[in-house]
Amino acid sequence: MDVTRRSFIKITGVTTAGLAIGKLGFDLSPVKAHAQMLKTAYARETTTICCYCAVGCGAIVHTSLKGDGRVINIEGDPDHVINRGSLCPKGASLSQLVENENRLTDPMYRAPYSSEWKKVSWDWALDQIARRVKKTRDANFTAKNEKGDVVNRTTAIASVGSAAMDNEECWIYQALMRSLGLVYIEHQARI
């Protein structure tokens, strides 16, 4: 993390398509009520990489240092050598992905034949999933195939996902699935 306000300003003096524009040479003395401090002044800056397409654009996340500690602004990272501060509409809307009332915030469970979701605890949900994994795997484990070759697998559990996970998450996820004997391991790259 070496994003500084200074470099921020420096980069904003360079345009996107290689055309030069002038420096924004203001004195910063407030002349009118509108020339207030930026809303991002009391925020912590962290860098991120956009979660949509695979260009890998850099963005700066402003997290409020006051109140609830939530995101107040996300915009392009001017020091990122690929996007140089720019973002498409999806990237530009990142803050609304984070601060979104439609997000799931608790584990939910749908019982057999039920027509509704029930809020459940993480502890209960993960415990129940682990039990089902064991039950299905143990009842459907193939040690040898029809030819008699050792295969040590189960085809009764399948997994899809996810290109939306981080590299490190992908690695431990596939390791867990392969340790269970899954061969139906697929994700977005296949479609």
Binding site: T48, V55, A125, I129, D166
Partner: peptide, 24 residues
Amino acid sequence: TIETEVFMLPACVSVEKEGSITNS
């Protein structure tokens, strides 16, 4: 008529965690 049990687990957004991704 549908028996399937479903566990829906809430993942957080990428800016709420740490890790790496690999671009094109």
